[in-house]
Design a protein around this nucleic acid. Sequence first.
DNA 1: CGAATCGTTGAGGTCGCTCAATCATAGTGG
DNA 2: CCACTATGATTGAGCGACCTCAACGATTCG
Lengths: 242, 242
Amino acid sequence: MQIEQTPLVRKLSSFTRLGSNDMTYLERLLSHPRTVHGHKELVREGTSDHDCYILLRGWACCYKVLRDGRRQIINFQVSGDFLGLRSFLLRSWDHSIATVTPAEISPVSQREMLHIIHDMPRLGRAVLWTVSRDEAIVAEHLASIGRRRALERTAHLLIELEERLKFVGLNSEKGFECPLTQDELGDALGLSAIHVNRVFRQLRERGFVSVAGRRIVVHDLKRLKALAAFDEHYLDQVAKPR
Amino acid sequence: MQIEQTPLVRKLSSFTRLGSNDMTYLERLLSHPRTVHGHKELVREGTSDHDCYILLRGWACCYKVLRDGRRQIINFQVSGDFLGLRSFLLRSWDHSIATVTPAEISPVSQREMLHIIHDMPRLGRAVLWTVSRDEAIVAEHLASIGRRRALERTAHLLIELEERLKFVGLNSEKGFECPLTQDELGDALGLSAIHVNRVFRQLRERGFVSVAGRRIVVHDLKRLKALAAFDEHYLDQVAKPR
DNA sequence: CGAATCGTTGAGGTCGCTCAATCATAGTGG
DNA sequence: CCACTATGATTGAGCGACCTCAACGATTCG
């Protein structure tokens, strides 16, 4: 794939026009990706190695596990997203990271990351922007879990994923490939998997979505957005770089 | 107050030893604080001016308001914390910010912030560290709201606030001054104010804390931490700079 | 003293949980 | 090819955590 067409560069370019030196740098950075299986833990909370990753292909998630085993997924990552960037300066990981599907990842050391931020103005700023954006997404999840009920909350997450995938060119007309199990959705939504199932039934019966294997088909995005009171501005994804 | 004794510098110095140029810079940056009333909105979600602030004294919070008026507080800020740093590169604010108590704040423009990050290695890195730390706190809140029940969740927040205040030298033995109403606590915890009240009653009746006006007295921090399964490592606050 | 704000308590309802069972699908080894 | 197993989806029954509504008490402040 041309570097310009990769999800990461599409995303970063929406924020700022990258220079050719940025492109060259990224091309090198992404040139030797590692392939990993699905459901492989990449980072364990509490450890203190300090690489982060760029996810080139596949899905991942970051999460916390409470002492009694309850799990909360903080966020999902898709192609073009960073893994672990949020806490790359902490002395030890505050969360774990795992793949959801088989994936390709490129490690980025803390040193490299600091180099990018300090010495590559455009790319560095774009990277910091993605940090801000990821944070905005987490904050929205917090609002969702704290203040929305299961139905709107679930709808909200589905729309978010659809929009994020669209942003990097990975959804098709009306819906997207979603590899998440109801268990994983539950852990992200603060619900039991069983209740996720019931919510999905409602969304199905009321004609909002249908599910065919891994594929989630959204029948009427506008109506679904109304149901979830979805306001996309937190994703900060607009067509053109400023 | 000597600049070395300000909460901000105490906090940053725990991460890295700041140079005298950093100190001078901060001294200038903090030299003309603005005084604002309590419950004053500083930033409204959706707007796009781009200053952030350093909170010198008082409490603040950042929050989101859903269309129907439900509110979710994302995090509280105390002396030495940044306001709005998390999303200073987004095109429009993804959340609102307001004071909780009367406060002193020093504005920091986006330009200044980028200058610090790009051109002042130690201070810049320390600032990025606080971003990571703030994010870790938000992630912990997410886990709390998603996966802990009201009692442990409330206890967890109280301990967090106590620890954060201790970190910047603002708590006294056994407890801290807490200006939050039960309404505000509810909005932070994803609970109704009424339920916060009932939870506090339980914490009182079971001998964990007592409340005297604005003051929250923690009787047995160790027992309270056990109740909340509190693991402080997410706060990344240790005594010495590395 | 009246108004406003905040805290407290009760009654009753509901959203989402747990437990348990069943079904569907895919992979695996004999 | 076919039991066998593992994983995930689905559904029902019953329960409990937390909510809403309503009322009242305490404190502060103009």
